[in-house]
Design a protein around this nucleic acid. Structure first.
Lengths: 195, 195
DNA sequence: ATCGTCATGTAACGTGTTACATGATTGT
DNA sequence: ACAATCATGTAACACGTTACATGACGAT
């Protein structure tokens, strides 16, 4: 039982942890979820089943064959206490100063899973941190290409404009999300406290 | 000299082709370009140099050591005629109906490289096709989650809202880009015709 | 004299891709 | 009877990551 894994989990692995945190899943059901939802992720048997085995080996998830009275037995995986720690650490992890727009999908995934794992206050803090990181990202980006703007061709200018628009969209979303979260009453079982 | 490679080139490989289409580059200079620009791509020596060797093996690019009078020799790669065909085929490739938002960065990269490879008319057609693909993407997406919206939690609703906003942004950008391209006069050497 | 930059490369490793294998069940 | 779906898995392969190796040049 190694306490240290020695590497960061992959996005796929964290996503699996997030899914399991909502409800125990089998390999097959995870594939289904990935097909419907996240298009960027693998969703192939050759990626999922080995990932589940790895996570089980690390004692991050635990699999159990569903009640044997079932005719078609599936192996249901659930988070171990250690797995919950890993998931929560990922959700609370400080935001990167670079690659923010590039990882916006991952940010949204984290936000999604945070609903059940973090308190409303923590989520609001997280959004605030995200907003600040976006500002930093934006100013450095502006400084960089203001020097180069003169040389830019038409297409280059348009691509830069696209990233600017995307940044503004993320900013607007964060603002809206914060407002929504402040206005809306807290869900019944949002921050689970029991073991 | 295999005429068929037997696989699709990777995004990194196509990006290298695009860079070489603007100007011959060495492995080291490509690393520099990737560091400054595309954050999502590898930019590590262990990825670039093997990729260049692969592309050279396929006769898609050709490397030549820079004038030996130079003290520090660098191997400059340029597109072969075959490589130009591969790049142009990629740029003209029909757009996917799925994964559009997920691949928006790739779309922008294509748009960037298209400036020198496609005619203004072709670029406008491409943008039109992109716009249509976005509409299809949007309607199927709406249909899908209108059925599930009732069950959505607050965070789920906000994530869906985020993707909706991103879609609108892409739409708005396409509109602006088309307008700009129609208004702006054509660059001097936009579609290069000489060998 | 040494450090940072320019410049090209290799080796081990690991995740994800593609394709295949297996078998029971449900629907037509 | 046959196809599609449920369900789990394996094997070959390959790209990218990390780390290391090498060496010349310019600056302090």
């Amino acid at each position: 039982m190694n306490d240290e894994i020695g590497r960061e989990l992959t996005v796929l692995e964290y996503t699996i942890l997030g899914m399991l945190s909502v409800e125990p899943q089998s390999g097959y059901s995870i594939i289904g979820l990935l097909e419907k939802g996240d298009r960027r992720l693998s969703n192939s048997a050759g990626a999922i089943y080995p990932a589940l085995k790895r996570l089980e080996k690390y004692d991050i998830i635990a699999g159990e064959v569903e009640a044997s009275n079932e005719l078609r037995p599936r192996k249901l995986y659930a988070l171990t206490p250690r797995g919950e720690k890993y998931l929560d650490a990922w959700l609370r992890e400080p935001l990167p100063n670079e690659d923010l727009l590039e990882n916006n999908e991952i940010m949204l995934r984290k936000f999604l899973f945070a609903e059940r794992r973090l308190s409303r206050a923590e989520v609001l803090e997280w959004l605030e941190a995200y907003e600040k990181a976006i500002e930093t990202y934006d100013t450095t980006r502006r400084l960089w290409y203001e020097t180069q703007m003169n040389f830019s061709s038409l297409h280059q200018q348009l691509v830069l404009e696209a990233t600017r628009m995307e940044l503004d969209t993320v900013r607007a979303w964060i603002k809206a999300a914060r407002a929504r979260l402040k206005a809306e009453p807290i869900d019944s079982e949002a921050p689970v406290m029991e073991p």
